[in-house]
Write a protein that binds this DNA or RNA. Structure first.
Length: 575
DNA sequence: GCCGTTTTCGGCCCGACTGTTTTCAGTCG
């Protein structure tokens, strides 16, 4: 039985929760949580990392946890976890996710009222039995009631970054407009450019926190304010998105922005670094004794710690601090580096605009080239092109190019990879194209072995330029399909062909750690909008963000090249 | 449970808000 990173991470997370409910040493609990995080975001499968000795080289994993990983891999079980489950009713874990309930109160509920799961808690609340308990006032009771009431509705759903942006930017502008506010920035996972955002963290610079927070109450999109002090407030927007606002004085803005941007693991690492240098770092500044040595800007904070300024997208404690110390951070790609887009659809398949209109939109965005990659005719996609229709589109594009001087239209197709690894169009027509994008649109549930074989077979075909949206996930709808990404990368490098970073808000595929892994393997990338209308060329921004989180530079991306160099790279993929 | 340019033991990031607290524990980020 194959044990994957996520299985290990889930087991460690459960260990941490159950140990917390038992009242264990908080640092031991944190060690499990940190290990879960490290394993979860590992770019490669643990199975390929080899023996225990290699495992304990991972940060946060020592001899004991390496042994537990080995045990899970060998037996599929973890005796320590099973022992804990016998001692702590597993239903108690779910209680930890409710607001106001931490390990201490959960333990009280179990000890005093015999509550072992959410349903027990619901009944106890209805019967009014909580009021008698120490530490459970009417405030907590009402918060629990409402949390249980809309637990299903709200859930812990994270929102795709581009959707969150529609709420974050107006709120930022509103805060910026409050009298006395000199600056307002969105921090948190949004500023780090994560593919999904769980809540919005905003930082405000003002000498009067109280008045800024009073003004926040008036924000029209705010449903309720759940907590409000003089420097900090939390609330919920009408769409259910959680918002945290923090106010600091200008001389603290840099350290506060850094602190509020996170990630948590990055912050802890940076604060340890400050400590070992005899300093203390908090959101108000970097202090040596009582003297503030940095605070107003992030730049002075990093400089004071002998680090290059680290772009927010890299702040995940995945080696960026070590790289900044060596002044060896990558120079991350920017939107203006892109010269064209290699994945777009017209109304010949499922796009919404005709060829001419899409090309006009690309020109107005100053793209130098655009590949038209309509779907092949296959199940699932209405109106996909067969070889005859594709041949007619090829002629139409040749004619269009005659009339264009500032943009080159590249002839392409997005060809389905069939279940057996064959392509949905014959090589004879694919040879006439400039770029062949291949992708999986069916049979997402195959086993990892079969899915991997399927894609590897497709990559053996003579005409394959780019593997599009390589894991098939749809945020909030469909998980990535099971595939051995490592083997796909090896095949892509040897072949060669390129890997797409898809900028559709629902896809953002592949995820950041896989992007970084591709870069580490020397596989070149294509940043694509997958546009289905001219307006969707804006999705290139999403692809850039995803690329930056994977440490990608301009040199790692094929569509930063002028068209002549790009064509040379594409020819290398055709046999 | 992890980890080490003071340390193989004794630390482990740090502060705001809430509630029930007459001085602080619990939770959260």
């Amino acid at each position: 039985m194959a044990v994957h990173n996520e299985d290990v991470a889930a087991a460690f997370d459960e260990m941490a929760d159950l140990l917390a409910i038992q009242g264990e040493n908080p640092f031991r609990i944190r060690a499990y949580r940190r290990a879960a995080q490290v394993v979860r975001t590992l770019p490669r499968d643990l199975a390929e990392l080899g023996d225990e000795r290699r495992l304990d080289e991972l940060p946060g994993i020592g001899a004991d946890l390496a042994g537990k990983i080995a045990e899970l891999r060998a037996t599929g079980r973890l005796r320590a976890l099973e022992t804990l489950r016998r001692r702590v009713p597993p239903g108690l874990r779910a209680l930890l996710s409710l607001p106001g309930l931490g390990p201490v109160r959960v333990r009280t509920l179990k000890a005093r009222l015999g509550i072992r799961c959410i349903e027990d808690l619901d009944r106890a609340l209805s019967a009014g039995r909580l009021g008698s308990l120490k530490g459970f006032g009417s405030g907590i009771e009402s918060r629990l009631r409402s949390a249980l009431a809309d637990k299903v509705a709200r859930g812990a759903q994270r929102m795709s970054w581009p959707i969150a942006a529609e709420y974050a930017e107006p709120l930022r502008a509103y805060l910026q407009s409050i009298p006395g506010v000199t600056r307002a920035e969105i921090a948190g996972s949004y500023r780090r450019g994560r593919d999904t955002v769980g809540d919005l963290d905003l930082l405000v610079s003002s000498r009067s926190g109280a008045s800024a927070i009073r003004a926040l109450r008036q924000y029209e999109d705010l449903r309720e304010l759940t907590a409000a002090g003089t420097t900090k407030a939390s609330g919920v927007l009408r769409n259910g998105l959680q918002v945290d606002v923090r106010v600091v004085a200008p001389q603290s803005f840099g350290t506060a922005l850094h602190y509020f941007t996170g990630s948590r693991d990055h912050n802890i690492h940076i604060r340890r670094r400050a400590q070992t240098r005899g300093c203390k770092l908090n959101e108000y500044g970097l202090f040596r004794g009582k003297r503030r040595v940095a605070g107003a800007t992030e730049e002075e904070l990093f400089a004071a710690l002998d680090l290059t300024w680290i772009p927010p997208e890299l702040r995940e404690d995945r080696g960026e601090i070590e790289a900044a110390e060596r002044h060896a951070l990558p120079e991350l790609i920017e939107r203006r580096d892109l010269q064209g887009d290699l994945h777009a659809h017209t109304d010949a398949s499922d796009g919404r605009e005709p060829l001419a209109k899409l090309v006009a939109a690309a020109r107005s965005r100053r793209l130098r080239y655009l590949a038209i990659t309509d779907h092949s005719k296959y199940l699932g996609v209405v109106g996909g092109l067969d070889a005859a229709r594709l041949a007619r589109q090829i002629d139409a594009i040749d004619a269009l190019n005659e009339k264009l001087s500032d943009l080159v239209v590249l002839k392409g197709a997005e060809v389905d990879i069939l279940e057996d690894g064959q392509l949905a169009l014959p090589d004879s027509i694919l040879r006439r194209l400039d770029v062949v994008v291949v992708s999986v649109h069916s049979q997402f549930g195959l086993s990892e072995a079969r899915q991997t074989t399927r894609v590897l077979r497709a990559l053996e075909r003579p005409c394959v330029s780019i593997l599009a949206h390589p894991t098939g996930r749809l945020l909030g709808e469909r998980p990535p399909y099971a595939i051995n990404f490592e083997r796909v990368l090896q095949a892509a490098r040897e072949r060669p062909c390129y890997l797409e970073i898809n900028g559709q808000p629902k896809r953002l595929d592949p995820e950041d750690v896989h992007v970084k892994s591709a870069r580490d393997h020397g596989v070149l990338l294509s940043i694509a909008s997958d546009a289905h209308s001219g307006a969707e060329f804006a999705f290139l921004d999403n692809g850039i963000r995803q690329a930056r989180r994977g440490w990608v530079t301009k040199e790692d991306v094929i569509n930063t090249r002028p068209v002549v160099e790009l064509r040379a790279l594409l020819r290398k993929t055709m046999r």
